[in-house]
Design a protein around this nucleic acid. Structure first.
Lengths: 198, 198
DNA sequence: CCCCTATATTGAACACTGTTCACTGGAGGC
DNA sequence: GCCTCCAGTGAACAGTGTTCAATATAGGGG
């Protein structure tokens, strides 16, 4: 029956995602090669294209995993912090983001290294996970700025996320030390909250 | 004589930089092709490699031009603003950065799209221009935070630059409107300066 | 249990990259 | 005008991702 074929395909699918994830982790996105993948997965090059539309599709699956791990890890940084000041929660979130990016540098970089041609196919999980992240930021933001209207709250939330992303991105790219990047995040976020932490 | 050869090479060099710049402006960095360049420049593919070490070297020259224009344009945003509050100068700088990125989107993107293999060859002008940008930011920062020591001033400067970069990068990538990105920058910078502008 | 057909898998071939280097043509000294 | 020598050439090379005619296999019907 067709189940056997389907099961084999699903096995291959998972195996290829695992292999691609390992390869990106060890050598970076740019090192991913269809022929190497086929050899490591003990299948033909063509088989990859039976299971994914193209290599980008495979990377998208890896990114899905990465992004979900990122979401969970950042979220877990503020569990048991409900009572902490909003400013401290923001800082904890940003440091969790930094930690993840540092400990998963190549996978994290692959999130943004994908070719975004034919923009329509940005997967749903991307926006979903991002929205979840934004929700975590949005809460402290509305506590710090209760006078903001909805639009400004959303813009400040997106802006702060982008800020933290920028600091981490450029910081890691220029090989700044963990302490320096950490300090930059703290300086910015604590001053935005008008609640200086020196 | 050798002067003639040298002059011809120099002409070709400039012509190729112009052509590459035009191509990136119109179709983006990913569309740059050695053969197309040779055809447009009325030379052989090999001639390109007589004048540049490789295509990356050519792109580096284009990026040099772009980065210098960026530096000038951002700097000019705060000439005649010496008397303005530091916060407003920061916002003006960030908006100038946004304007440049918007009006030169593909060239600006090419600044970060270059392959950074063999990291040693990051050109001197890169750090020089960046230092100049940092100097412009550093001045308002030390006015707003006179109590900061030198290390923190530098970290806040780099942090704010990275923040603005992040907001512009993600903003333009997600096709946010100019007004939204502008507002995000204003919200963040005016609150950091504890000098709200609503 | 054994065909037989529809479907899945294969990997050589294709289209396209950047880069090289043995050749060639012409510039410039004698 | 001849003869070096060297700059310019572009066909060839080494790698990519992707395809698709050929092959192998699955699994239902006799």
């Amino acid at each position: 029956m067709a189940t056997k074929t389907k099961a084999r395909r699903e096995d291959l699918r998972l195996k290829l995602i695992d292999l691609a994830e390992a390869q990106i982790t060890e050598q970076g996105l740019a090192s991913l090669r269809a022929r190497d993948l086929a050899k490591a997965g003990e299948c033909s090059v063509g088989a990859i294209y039976n299971v994914f539309t193209d290599l980008n599709g495979l990377v998208l699956q890896v990114n899905g995993r990465t992004f979900q791990r990122l979401g969970k890890q950042v979220a877990s940084a503020i569990t048991d912090m409900e009572t902490a000041p909003a400013c401290e929660r923001l800082i904890a979130l940003s440091h969790a983001y930094l930690d993840f990016a540092q400990n998963n540098y190549r996978l994290w970089n692959a999130l943004f290294g994908i070719k975004m041609t034919s923009d329509s196919n940005i997967p749903a999980w991307y926006q979903t996970t991002l929205d979840l992240l934004f929700a975590h930021i949005s809460k402290p933001v509305s506590e710090i700025f209760p006078e903001f209207n909805a639009a400004d709250t959303q813009l400040m939330t997106r802006g702060l996320f982008s800020s933290v992303h920028g600091v981490v991105l450029l910081g890691l790219q220029q090989r700044a030390s963990s302490a320096e990047i950490s300090r930059m995040l703290t300086l910015i976020l604590s001053n935005i909250s008008q609640n200086k932490v020196f």
